[in-house]
Structures are given as structure tokens and as C-alpha cells.
Design a protein around this nucleic acid. Structure first.
Length: 780
RNA sequence: GCGAGAGUGGCGGAAUUGGCAGACGCGCCAGAUUUAGGAUCUGGUGUCCUAUGGACGUGGGGGUUCAAAUCCCCCCUUUCGCACCA
């Protein structure tokens, strides 16, 4: 587990994450597993820094006090955290190794600096990774993001795109999350096709539809494409440069809105079609993205929605080259593009071929001519990791006039984050204002250089923390390979689904990168993943602006943490979350009290518990409960596990109120209560320990073995068989489990109610489902 | 627009190799206990009707089947993710 101390206290989401996860771990511990349940703080980063700015304190200070306060709260959860292994990503002992990670990637060409259009958030005053932009808005502050050309640091996550994709198949992760990552990586297969610009260079386009090549009527460059300036004709240059300026001024939402009408201008240049030799005009338009594919699109208006819209607006020709077999498409009458696969027409020797085969042949043909080849493109971009903010790990690079970017030697790590910095955001890296920090000599040539003023994205810190948990105080290495071999990868990871395309993708990438360098024995960091859902209030997400926050502290004071965490587990499916109800928690409070009272009133310490003294039926219910609860906790179905425990408690209350002669013997009841306490303990650890002591034990209940289900005890002698007539339940009977089928049929047919329904009618069919029901079909 | 999930009593939710729909809990009703309130214990509680029986019932409509919340087709609502990705 890893807390993010961006605020000053734990909210209900933290509890929902940590409480049930701890119950699962306690259950596993009782099952005999060795459990390591660490807790630490992801204490660098924008939210922590913004909190500090808002409260007018230094982030080092506010982070410290937040961590201290939250640690106290975490202790209330009653989890098995191993505080000796706690880490803080903002401590030099930790970020020394985050910097080491950066340098390791840099030395293997997996980190690089590049001038590129990046996402810039005005209000945060920093660039953001693609993953941190949602619908054109900053993920954190929700202000619009603009495009800016900047030199930034990137991690080469795209080199691992295929691996990251393939690795998903072997993970025990939610289907949804794997799908999300699959879509985010966005692999698409197609063809690179080379077009010659008339009187100039050659350019490549990427297309997934080589079968439509004969339908290209123009080509579109992204406005930012570096060649635009070169190819634009003198007559068109004024228009072109005006359009480029206009594009730059637009923010991402304006620009990428699909609602917006398409815009663009003609460049005055032409390309030559590689197969027909036709001259096709080159346009620029902002519907083409510079960062995807080659930044240039071959436009096929007849078979692509966007190209069609553009062509209609600017009166460009539409040429049909794919049809459904036996039909005819008139370009002048089309109201929308025909985007389905079909059969090639107007395509010279390829006519009559279906799309898929035709596309393949066109690609092969182009390859022979040297004007094309198969290609794969990804939606995934390299991970932009530099931030123009203060509260993060400094990038351990010294920029030298003559040597370029030079890594800080490992023995000089960490590059300490200076405390004396004006960190208020103003669109420039705050560290750049600290002369003392910036001044450095080049480790390579000894000349004066300057430090990199940027800090790393917090997601870099959290991409490897699980490795550090094992040996947080190790001084000469980031992690201990022996311990890593013994404990990792993580057997069970629990966290929010909001991390699907950020943390969980980054951590996978880092593990794979380190594995490829021979530094880790595994490729995937988190073998099994479960997401907790979101707890809502009145159907809405809790937020300050809605004023519907449920404060854990209030409920803790009133009910205690056992009841609080059990209620969260009882509310609904763990992965779905649920809607908080102030009254619903009383059910759990009663449950806890009933368990407490049952032990207090009916357990008699002077009598040794004895399973044999339990009535058969009660024993069966006990073992059924053990079986179900074990299965349910295993798969994080805490709500049904608690239901089963409630049923067991109800059974206990029932049997103790039976008349003296049919009540279970004290030894049997003692046994039943002992088991109950063990089964409840992972859900309510405080109650579990307390009752265990009352039962006369001096050691922790979590050192006990989890009860196992005796299959024998589950056996019953009689079972209820339902009788259906024409699909409706008309009767039910109790029969021996080993009853002969013929005998059962006889009994069924003799039943009075069956006779009633049969009289004057004809039995057409009789179906026996052993152990469940007998279904009769009758007709008059 | 594309992708994934969800829709079951007054409420939260169970039940998925098709086999008694509504487990468990909240709320509500009744009884017991109590001077009273609270707490506790017991029983009841899907809807409707001509009521020891019967009809209907899992977003809507159709289908397969002896049997459908569950499988198939169409539609509606809703949540989440992506969104001009060529």
C-alpha cells in the first residue's frame, strides 16, 4: 500500500482501499502464508506542492506534518503494517535511487531529451504526460491544457509497447483494466506509403487501409509538421503561416473537438501518387495530429469519415474505390463515407479483390517498387517525465556546452533538492532561480555547466517503490536482489482503477526495462490485481464542492474501526463500490454486538470445546460457513462472506434458545463460538483479538490456523426436491439423497397435488434433475 | 462516435455450468421485555387477486427451452474509459 499525502487526512477512499485489503491479508496469514504488508508515502508531487502553496508553508514542512497525522490515522485502521519498512519518496535516501533509475535508463538510451509539442498546464505551470490529460484538461486542476514546443525528458516506453501488450494476456487482472491498457497502447497494423513531393523530398504516410490507395485525392500534413515550411509555395505561404499561428493559439479541447467543423489550407504543393502518377494537392489541417503515425495522412474521402467531411467542405474530389459487391456508389450523391470493407474497384489490376486481400497485395506491390512497407503504429507516446515544478526528484543531469547532457556520477547522488527556493509556479522551473543549485562542473570535461532545473514526474517515484519496501535502508543499492527474488513480484495488488493507464502502465514498463537490463528476474510487477470501487454518497462521487463527504473520523468515534471497515465491506461488491448509508451501518453494529454478546454469554471457559458435541445440523452449517467464507474472501467477495457469518450467528442464537433437552452441549457450543471468533477475526481484528483473549488465549488470534471445511460434515441425508408442472413450482418433497430415480418418480406421481394437476390430462414428459427437481409436462 | 460494465422489492444488495428469484442487511409492521424511551429478543414483510389457493414479477420487446435474472436478437436507460489515432 502506498499513501499519497496530498491532503491532511485520510478520506473514505483510503479506508476502502486499505481496510478490506488488510482483511484479505489477515485471512491469508491465518491460512499459513508469510505476509508482508508495507505502507509508505508517495510524498513528492504536484498535489503535495499545491497543498503547501495553498497553506503558505514549505512543502517539506506540510508533507512532514501530513505524514505524521496520516500515520496516526492509518494506525486506527488496525492493519498489519510493517512500519519498519516504511518509505517516503521525498526523502533523499529514497530519491537518490529514483535518480539512479533515471540514470540507468539514460545510460541505456531509454531516457532522452527531445524538443516536441507538449501538454502545458497554465495553472500548474508545468508540462504533463499524455496520460495526465483528460479531455484536453489537466487531470489535477481541470484547467485547459495547451500545446507548447519544449525540450523535455522522455522515457522510451514505446520501445516496450508490444511487450506491454503481450504481457497483459498472462496477468490475473480485471478484464476491464487490461482492455484499457490495450486501447491505450493502441497498436494498429497498416502500411507506410511513400509519396514523392513534386520537385522536392519524399514523405511517408501511415494508413490502415492500403486497399483504398487508389482513392487518395489529396494529402494532409499536420500544421506543425517540419516540412510544411519547406513545401509551401510562395503564393500560399501567407495563408499557411497564418493557419499555423492560429493552430498554435488553440488549446487542446478546441482543437480536438470532433464537433468542430474541419479547417485547413492548401499549401500550393503537390505529391505524386506512387501507383497512378497523379498529382495530388497537399493541404495542412489540424485534424491531422503531428504526434501520431508520420504526421501526414493520405486522404481518401470516399472511405474515411473525416476526409469526406474535409473534402466536401473544400470541394475536393471524391473517388470511390471500394464497394459492396454488386452495388454502385456515386461520389456526387454520397452523404457519408463508405468505411466498411468491400471489394476494390477503380483500382487498376486490383479490381475485384476483397479489402483485406487487396490491401495486402497493394502493400506487397508497393514494397517491390520500394514505395511502401508493412508498418505498425501505436497510440502510446513516450512518457514525458520532466516537470517544471519544485517538489520532485531533481533530474540528475548536468548540461555542458561541449559535452551536452552528462549524467551526474552515481557516487554524487543524490542531487539534493534545495530547500531555499521560491517554489511558487510561474511557468518556469523554480530550481532555475537557485544559482547555487544550478552551478555545476561538467563531470566529463570539467568545464562549467548547469544542472537540469526540472524535476521528475511523481509517477517515476511510484514506478519502483515496491522494490524498495523490502530494504528501505539499504545504502549502496536500490534494492536487495536476494530479497527481491524471494518476495517479488507482488502476489496481490490492490488499488484504484484510476491508475489503469498511469501508475500501472508505468510500473509495468519500468519492470520490463529493468528486466531487459538484467536487473530484475521478473517482467511483470503485479501478478494479481484487484480494484476497489468507489464509495458514493446519494449516488454522487464524494467531493467538497458537492458537500457530501463522509468523514471516516466521525464514524470511527461512534462505531469504532471494526464496524466501520466491516460496513464498507458489506455495502456491496468490492470492485463496484457502493452508496454510503448512515443507517445501513447499524446492521453491522448489531452484528458486532451479537458476536460479542454470544461469546460473553454462552462461552463457558471451564469446559473444553469439543466439535463432537455439536448437533449434526449445526455442525453442517458451521462447515458450510467455513467453506463459503473461505471462498468469498479469497475472491474479495467480502459482502457475501459477511452475510454467511451473519447466518452463522443467527444459527447460534437459534440453538441456544432451544429447550434444554435439544440445546447443544456446552462443549459443542464452546467449539462453535471458537470457530466463529476465528472466522470473524480478519474482518474485525480488534474484536477478534479481544474475544480470543476472553476465550482464554494469550497469543494473537492471527497466529491461529484458519478453520478448514470438513467435506464429510457437509453431507446431508435428506434433501428437498421441487416438483414443477408445466414449468411452475407446485410442490416440494423431502427425500433421501441416495434415492433411486425410479423410486423418486413413483413418489412424485403419487403426491396429491401432482395427482390434482394430472387428473384428466396426459403426462407427456418427466425430467429428473438429480438433487434439485422433477419437472413434469402435462397436456389436456 | 468507439470500447467495456451495469439495470433485480421501499433501500443496499444475493443468486451466472439455465433448475424454488429476492440470501444477508437496512427500513417497515406485529409481539415479548421495559415505568417510559432506547437497547435487546421473536415473528412477518416482492406486487396484485375472488386469498390454507392463485396470477404476475429481475429496464422494455421478441425468441430458444420441460425450465431463463442467467442463453440468442432488437431497443431503452445509466456508469466508466477513449475520443479527428488515419
Amino acid at each position: 500500500m502506498f499513501s499519497y499525502p496530498s491532503g491532511d487526512r485520510l478520506h473514505i477512499g483510503h479506508w476502502y482501499n486499505y481496510g478490506p485489503a488488510d482483511s484479505w491479508a489477515r485471512f491469508k496469514k491465518m491460512q499459513g502464508y508469510t505476509i508482508f504488508e508495507p505502507m509508505g508515502f508517495d510524498s513528492f508531487g504536484l498535489p503535495a506542492e499545491n497543498y503547501a502553496i495553498k497553506h503558505g508553508v514549505h512543502p517539506a514542512k506540510s508533507t512532514r506534518s501530513n505524514i505524521d497525522f496520516i500515520t496516526g490515522q492509518l494506525n486506527q485502521i488496525g492493519a498489519m503494517y510493517d512500519w519498519d519498512h516504511a518509505i517516503e519518496t521525498s526523502s533523499p535516501q529514497y530519491y537518490k535511487w529514483t535518480q539512479w533509475l533515471f540514470l540507468t535508463l539514460f545510460k541505456h538510451d531509454l531516457a532522452y531529451q527531445s524538443e516536441a509539442p507538449v501538454n502545458w498546464c497554465e495553472s500548474c505551470g508545468t508540462v504533463l504526460a499524455n496520460e495526465q490529460v483528460h479531455e484536453g484538461h489537466c487531470e489535477r486542476c481541470e484547467n485547459p491544457v495547451i500545446r507548447k514546443e519544449m525540450k523535455q525528458w522522455f522515457f522510451r516506453i514505446t520501445s516496450f509497447a508490444d511487450e506491454l501488450l503481450a504481457g497483459l494476456d498472462h496477468l490475473d487482472w480485471p478484464e476491464k483494466t487490461r482492455k484499457l491498457q490495450t486501447n491505450w497502447i493502441g497498436r494498429s497494423e497498416g502500411t507506410h506509403i511513400t509519396f514523392k513531393i513534386k520537385g522536392s523530398d519524399e514523405i511517408d504516410v501511415f494508413t490502415t487501409r492500403p486497399d483504398t490507395l487508389y482513392g487518395v485525392t489529396y494529402v494532409v500534413f499536420a500544421p506543425e509538421h517540419p516540412l510544411v515550411e519547406k513545401v509551401a509555395s510562395d503564393e500560399q505561404w501567407a495563408d499557411v503561416s497564418e493557419y499555423i499561428t492560429l493552430t498554435r493559439s488553440r488549446n487542446e479541447i478546441e482543437r480536438t473537438s470532433t464537433e468542430r467543423e474541419k479547417t485547413g489550407v492548401f499549401t500550393g504543393a503537390y505529391v505524386i501518387h506512387p501507383l497512378t502518377g497523379a498529382e495530388l494537392p497537399i493541404w495542412i489541417a489540424d485534424y491531422v495530429l503531428a504526434s501520431y503515425g508520420t504526421g501526414i495522412v493520405m486522404a481518401v474521402p470516399a472511405h474515411d469519415e473525416r476526409d469526406f467531411e474535409f473534402a466536401r467542405k473544400f470541394d475536393l474530389p471524391v473517388r470511390v474505390v471500394i464497394t459492396q459487391p454488386g452495388t454502385f456508389l456515386d461520389p456526387s450523391l454520397m452523404e457519408t463515407a463508405f468505411t466498411e470493407p468491400g471489394v476494390m474497384v477503380n483500382s487498376s489490376e486490383f479490381n475485384g479483390l476483397p479489402s483485406s486481400e487487396g490491401g495486402r497485395l497493394v502493400t506487397e506491390h508497393l514494397a517491390r517498387l520500394g514505395s511502401g512497407e508493412q508498418a505498425v503504429t501505436y497510440r502510446l507516446r513516450d512518457w514525458l517525465i520532466s516537470r517544471q515544478r519544485y517538489w520532485g526528484a531533481p533530474i540528475p543531469i548536468i548540461h555542458c556546452e561541449s559535452c551536452g547532457p552528462v549524467p551526474v556520477p552515481e557516487e554524487e547522488l543524490p542531487v539534493l533538492l534545495p530547500e531555499d527556493v521560491d517554489f511558487r509556479p510561474r511557468g518556469k522551473a523554480p530550481l532555475a532561480t537557485n544559482k547555487q543549485f544550478m552551478a555545476a562542473t561538467c563531470p566529463q570535461c570539467g568545464e562549467a555547466g548547469r544542472r537540469d532545473p526540472d524535476t521528475m514526474d511523481t509517477f517515476v517515484c511510484s514506478s519502483w517503490y515496491y522494490l524498495r519496501y523490502l530494504s528501505p535502508n539499504l545504502e549502496d543499492k536500490p534494492w536487495d536482489p536476494e530479497l527481491v527474488k524471494r518476495w517479488l513480484p507482488v502476489a496481490q495488488y490492490v488499488g484504484g482503477s484510476e491508475h489503469a493507464t498511469m501508475h500501472l502502465l508505468y510500473a509495468r514498463f519500468i519492470a520490463r526495462a529493468l528486466h531487459s537490463l538484467g536487473l530484475l528476474h521478473f517482467q511483470e510487477p503485479f501478478t494479481r490485481l484487484v480494484h476497489q470501487g468507489i464509495i458514493t454518497r446519494d449516488g454522487d462521487k464524494m467531493s467538497k464542492s458537492r458537500g457530501n463527504i463522509v468523514s471516516p473520523d466521525d464514524f470511527l468515534t461512534r462505531y469504532g474501526s471494526d464496524v466501520f471497515r466491516m460496513y464498507m465491506m458489506f455495502m456491496g461488491d468490492y470492485g463496484e463500490g457502493g452508496d454510503w448509508s448512515d443507517t445501513g451501518i447499524t446492521g453491522i453494529e448489531r452484528f458486532r454486538n451479537r458476536v460479542w454478546r454470544a461469546v460473553g454469554e454462552w462461552y463457558q471457559p471451564e469446559v473444553a470445546p469439543a466439535a463432537a458435541e455439536l448437533p449434526k445440523e449445526t455442525n453442517r452449517i458451521l462447515h458450510y460457513t467455513i467453506q463459503q467464507v473461505t471462498r468469498d474472501i479469497e475472491q474479495f467477495s467480502f459482502n457475501t462472506a459477511l452475510s454467511r457469518l451473519m447466518e452463522l450467528v443467527n444459527e447460534i442464537y437459534r440453538v441456544v434458545q432451544l429447550p434444554e433437552n435439544s440445546r447443544p452441549a456446552t462443549a459443542g457450543l464452546n467449539f462453535l463460538l471458537t470457530r466463529l471468533v476465528q472466522l470473524v477475526a480478519p474482518f474485525a481484528p480488534h474484536l477478534g483479538e479481544e474475544l480470543w483473549q476472553q476465550l482464554g488465549h494469550e497469543t494473537s488470534i492471527f497466529a491461529e490456523t484458519w478453520p478448514t471445511c470438513d467435506e464429510q460434515a457437509l453431507q446431508v441425508e435428506e434433501q428437498t426436491i421441487v416438483i414443477q408442472i408445466n414449468g411452475k413450482v407446485r410442490d416440494s418433497i423431502s427425500v433421501p439423497v441416495d434415492i433411486d430415480q425410479k423410486e423418486l418418480e413413483q413418489i412424485v406421481l403419487q403426491r396429491e397435488r401432482v395427482q390434482q394437476h394430472l387428473s384428466g390430462k396426459q403426462l407427456q414428459k418427466l425430467i429428473v434433475v438429480p438433487g434439485k427437481l422433477v419437472s413434469l409436462v402435462v397436456k389436456s
